[in-house]
Design a protein around this nucleic acid. Structure first.
Length: 446
DNA sequence: TCTGGGGTCCTAGGACCC
DNA sequence: TCTGGGGTCCTAGGACCC
């Protein structure tokens, strides 16, 4: 394996990476009393911790710990637990993203709390600009953020990791890299030191498994990884890790993906509040998951060719396990709620076995294509009456829900309109104002 | 008692074809 | 004893990410 000397001083900096809308931070904007206290945000059904304040981390609370294990900490350490409010986080994310978009010509929104911005051609002191942006985000949105700047996405991610970690673990990295870290500011020696201080598992793209394998080979730091020969890495591991190595060496190998392109797959899945055994209850859940997935699909003006439905028992229980998925092709690619719900229900009935306690179900839309024919669009009149009917119903559904809020109208499975929703999302207190049975809606009224 | 949800990409192996 | 060789497409599952 050859040795490459990393030095990024003379390279251009095409991308920059910015982050941190911890859910806890969103809550603190409206609840200043939570500052300085250990706070966690809980997942659906208040199942487990999905966001932690630094004070909560200091208590040793790890990501994904189930709530029942945390409950004692409320008494003992004043831990505050909140049910997730994803609508709020999405809102604050949108506001931050539009501010960040002004940094450069191109932006990739990577997740709810991260984006890459292309800084090619942006002049001036990038580090200073980073600090100014951070102050703006804090002032205008109220969220603390961290900014990393590097010549590739992987290095920008690494820089961001350093920006974040420096404040949390004093002494690990040079203090001036806290909050905003620009790798271009570092001398070759300082850069090597920073890479050497980063464990290989902290590199973007190296997870638990790969991390363990690399450690076993004596490759412990990001520097160790950066000094490998990419071709050897490809042969011994994979093209994925090869890309990571190249990126660490300063060669951009993962492109910026601009917004606007639709997703390749859409999923709606939920764990149930209590175990579910009966088919009708699963049918009701799957019906709602499928129609919500269809709404997402129409928002990107897409059509799905296949619908996957899965059900599974809880892997954490001793009871006998069952987990199956089935994929149903649609007669023709569609974004209609009716067609997608029917396919999902057919898939469910094909996989359902009585006698199991189901803990989770999900509907995935696969093989997505652009351009479902929608009401008012060219080609609509060429559809069959059933297809036109479906498109019209979907359109009405979307308009009502956009205007009056999610779940104003939703589809219920046949014979179950108005029964209790089994996946009880505690934070959603709204009850649907209307329920209807899809199959019972007369064509003439659509 | 009680353990999230939503994505992406890659690979191996089987089916099928000539 | 000894059963071609190579290409494509599809799918399931793994690994990773936030």
């Amino acid at each position: 394996m050859k040795v490459a000397e990393p030095s990024y001083q003379d390279m251009s900096f095409p991308s920059k990476y910015v982050l941190r809308i911890i859910y806890v931070s969103c809550e603190r904007v409206f609840r200043p009393d939570l500052n300085g206290r250990p706070v966690v945000v809980l997942s659906n059904n208040d199942g487990c911790a999905i966001s932690r304040s630094n004070e909560a981390k200091a208590l040793g609370i790890r990501m994904g710990v189930p709530w029942y294990q945390l409950r004692p900490l409320v008494q003992r350490h004043g831990l505050v637990a909140l049910s997730a409010n994803f609508a709020l986080y999405g809102d604050m994310s949108d506001r931050m993203m539009s501010l960040l978009a002004t940094l450069g010509a191109q932006q990739e929104v990577y997740s709810i709390d991260e984006c890459f911005v292309d800084l090619a051609g942006v002049g001036g002191d990038l580090t200073q600009r980073g600090h100014r942006m951070r102050e703006q985000l804090l002032q205008w949105v109220g969220i603390p953020s961290g900014i990393g700047i590097g010549p590739t996405k992987t290095l920008a991610k690494l820089a961001n990791h350093i920006a974040k970690t420096t404040a949390q673990q004093p002494g690990r990295y040079p203090a001036q890299l806290a909050q905003v870290c620009n790798l271009g500011d570092l001398s070759p020696g300082a850069l090597q030191a920073v890479l050497a201080a980063t464990r290989v598992g902290e590199v973007w793209g190296v997870g638990r498994r790969l991390g363990a394998q690399l450690e076993a080979c004596g490759l412990h730091s990001a520097l160790d990884l950066a000094q490998l020969d990419p071709t050897t890495v490809r042969r011994r591991w994979s093209v994925v890790l090869e890309r990571t190595v190249r990126e660490l060496q300063g060669t951009a190998s993962i492109g910026l993906e601009e917004g606007g392109h639709g997703k390749r797959q859409i999923a709606v899945t939920r764990s149930f509040g209590q175990p579910v055994t009966a088919l009708p209850e699963l049918e009701e859940a799957v019906t709602v998951f499928a129609s919500r997935a269809a709404e997402k699909l129409r928002r990107q003006h897409g059509a799905a060719a296949q619908v996957m439905t899965y059900i599974r028992t809880s892997p954490f229980r001793q009871a006998s396990q069952y987990s199956r998925a089935s994929v149903m092709p649609l007669p023709r690619p569609s974004g209609e709620t009716g067609a997608i719900v029917r396919a999902a229900l057919a898939g469910l009935r094909a996989t359902y076995r009585p006698g199991f306690s189901y803990a989770k179900a999900g509907v995935l839309l696969l093989d997505l294509q652009a351009g479902a024919v929608q009401q008012g669009e060219l080609g609509f009149e060429a559809c069959t009456p059933e297809q036109r009917h479906g498109a019209r119903l979907s359109d009405v559904l979307d308009r009502l829900n956009q205007r009056y809020g999610q779940d104003t109208v939703f589809v219920a499975s046949a014979g179950l309109g108005g029964t209790q929703r089994v996946w009880s999302m505690k934070q959603e207190h709204r009850s649907p104002r209307y329920t209807t049975c899809w199959d019972e809606l007369p064509v003439a009224h659509a």
